[in-house]
Amino acid sequence: MGSVAQRFSIGQRVRTGPVRPSGHTRLPRYLSERSGVIAHLHGLYPVADDRAEGRTDAPPQALYGVSFEARELWGEGASGFTVIADLWDAYLEEAP
């Protein structure tokens, strides 16, 4: 469940959820079910998933810049880079 408030702070570890089985999302598949770190707080933005489905009354959610290590995305052989993506609160949970 996404909340309007900013749940996470910079430096906090988070984990992305699964890609929704149907409907629009802006969570890329290669970033689903991966752990990253909150790197930027962008503020509140209307969620693309809601807009695509015409839910104009849906509250905006916190949008975060989340940084993922190469190894987390592609396995042990990958290093020397990070991928940073902008993800809405609803896509994220606190990392265990």
Binding site: H42, L63, T82
Partner: peptide, 14 residues
């Protein structure tokens, strides 16, 4: 080889 690369994936409103 020691330069860190940051790839910015424009997934949302930025």
């Amino acid at each position: 080889s020691d330069t860190e690369i940051r790839v910015w994936d424009s997934t949302a409103e930025l």
